[in-house]
C-alpha cells in the first residue's frame, strides 16, 4: 500500500466533491492516526480546520470523521479532543462572537449533538462537560 499522510487522508474523506460519505476514506483516516506517534494532535488540528470550512458539506463530512474516530480510536485521541485547545475550535464555530453567525444551522447542531453525546459517553473527559456547560450557560445550547 502506498504511504499516505494524514493530511491526504482527511482531504479525501472530506472532499466537497464526494457524493456520499466516503466510509473507506473515513476509516483509513482513523486507522492512520492511531498508527502515528503524533497522530492524535495532528488529526485534531486537521479536523478543526475542516470543521470550520464555509462549505457545509465539507464541515459535515469532517464532523462525521470526528464522530467516527471518537467511536473507533482510543484514549490518545479522546484525550486530544478533550483538551480546550480542540474544544475551543468547536466553540468558535457555534459562538456568534466568532464564526457562529455565518455557520449553517446543520453544522452547529451537529457539533452540539456530538458534544452532548461525549458528555454522556466520556464522563471522565471533564473539559468536554465544562465546555458544554459553558455553552448552556451562555444560551448557545438551548433546551
Amino acid at each position: 500500500m502506498e504511504p499516505e499522510t494524514l493530511e491526504a487522508r482527511i482531504n479525501k474523506a472530506t472532499n466537497p466533491l464526494n457524493k456520499d460519505l466516503d466510509w473507506d476514506g473515513i476509516n483509513a483516516f482513523c486507522e492512520q492516526l492511531n498508527k502515528e506517534l503524533e497522530g492524535p494532535p495532528l488529526a485534531t488540528r486537521l479536523l478543526a480546520h475542516k470543521i470550520q470550512s464555509p462549505q457545509e458539506w465539507e464541515a459535515i463530512q469532517a464532523l462525521t470523521v470526528l464522530e467516527s474516530c471518537m467511536k473507533s480510536c482510543g484514549k490518545r485521541f479522546h484525550d486530544e479532543v478533550g483538551k480546550f485547545r480542540f474544544l475551543n475550535e468547536l466553540i468558535k464555530v457555534v459562538s456568534p462572537k466568532y464564526l457562529g453567525s455565518r455557520t449553517p444551522e446543520k453544522v452547529k447542531s451537529k457539533i452540539l449533538e456530538l458534544m452532548y453525546s461525549w458528555t454522556l459517553g466520556l464522563p471522565h473527559e471533564v473539559k468536554i462537560s465544562e465546555a458544554y456547560q459553558m455553552l448552556k450557560k451562555q444560551g448557545i445550547v438551548k433546551c
Partner: peptide, 15 residues
C-alpha cells in the same frame, strides 16, 4: 523538543 506525551492545553474560550 518534541514531547510524545504533550499534556499542555489552553484556557476555555469565553463566548
Amino acid at each position: 523538543t518534541v514531547s510524545f506525551h504533550d499534556d499542555s492545553d489552553e484556557d476555555l474560550l469565553n463566548v
